[in-house]
């Protein structure tokens, strides 16, 4: 009497289990203790070596978890990117939606720009520890919108030293999206690939957020149904290069929403105004 429903039930369960297994085998997900290892992708020997090109050349997918990728990037940045002395980190965010340039917070008059440049000077010691930091965020017309300064006292006066543990080298490898992913248990599928870009071996990471219902947004031709962040890292030296944010619209087209670029300079000295700022506290 109940045979037919049971057959349907078993068939559906088999289908569901198959679906789960299929999802589990997709690359880029952490499924084992291997996530904690620093296994650099030497196994990815099949990477296609392409000539210098502005157009990225797709290469093999990287069989690494987000935790492994993060650890490899930080390790490479420590070995090849940062040097003792002053380091200038320059970040530029460009918004492509052509909406208003900024908003003003009525409670305190603070300006929040859509397009911005942030220059951060870091004082790095021989042990590659950040001992002092000066960070300034500006609008494109050079209006300063925020300023952060910190020192443990080894340069200038001690000030805001409690935030220095948060701005060590791993912070400047810009792995915050990987960090969120790891925090979530790496349940989201991420594609890691190698590209050849301007002669560099670039790690390309794509993260996608799919929304439960379409979202109308000023500056977009159609409501967006999902958003992808495409991060690019110089794999040889562990440097974050740039990230592009792409909206997938209801008509299926994609639209570039924003771009974050980052450069790191270990051969410059801060201007006098920055250096002098460390000898006073904001109250003086």
């Amino acid at each position: 009497m109940f045979r037919k429903p049971y057959i349907v039930l078993i068939a559906l369960l088999v289908l569901a289990a198959g679906f789960i297994l299929l999802m589990a085998q997709k690359p880029g997900e952490a499924k084992s203790e291997a996530a904690a290892q620093t296994a650099l992708p030497t196994a990815v020997g099949e990477v296609i070596q392409a000539a210098q090109s502005v157009t990225p050349v797709m290469a093999a997918e990287v069989e690494m978890s987000a935790a492994q990728v993060r650890e490899a990037l930080v390790e490479r940045a420590k070995q090849h990117l940062f040097k003792p002395g002053w380091v200038l980190v320059r970040e530029t965010f460009t918004d492509f939606t052509k909406a208003e340039d900024y908003v003003v917070v009525p409670m305190n008059g603070q300006i929040i720009p859509k397009n911005w440049v942030r220059e951060t000077w870091l004082l790095v010691d021989e042990g590659l520890q950040v001992k002092a930091m000066f960070s300034e965020k500006k609008m494109l017309d050079d209006t300063i919108v925020s300023l952060t300064r910190a020192s443990d006292g080894s340069f200038g006066k001690a000030f805001n030293a409690e935030i220095l543990p948060n701005v060590q080298i791993d912070y400047w490898t810009k792995t915050e999206t990987l960090d969120r992913l790891i925090e979530q248990g790496e349940t989201q599928r991420v594609v890691f690939q190698f590209l050849s870009l301007d002669g560099k071996r670039v790690l390309y990471a794509v993260y996608s957020d799919v929304f439960p219902s379409p979202i109308r947004m000023e500056g977009l031709k159609q409501p967006l149904i999902s958003f992808s962040t495409e991060d690019h890292y110089d794999w040889e030296i562990g440097q974050f290069l740039f990230s592009e944010g792409w909206a997938t619209l209801t008509d299926g087209n994609r639209q570039l929403v924003g771009r974050l670029e980052m450069s790191i300079d270990c051969n410059s000295t801060p201007p006098d105004a920055v250096l002098e700022g460390f000898s006073i506290t904001p109250e003086e």
């Binding site: 965010f93 929040i112 859509k114 951060t120 960070s135 952060t148 910190a150 805001n160 944010g245 974050l260």
Partner: peptide, 8 residues
């Protein structure tokens, strides 16, 4: 990325 906190 666009609307982030200051470093630290």
């Amino acid at each position: 990325y666009q609307y982030s906190c200051n470093p630290g």
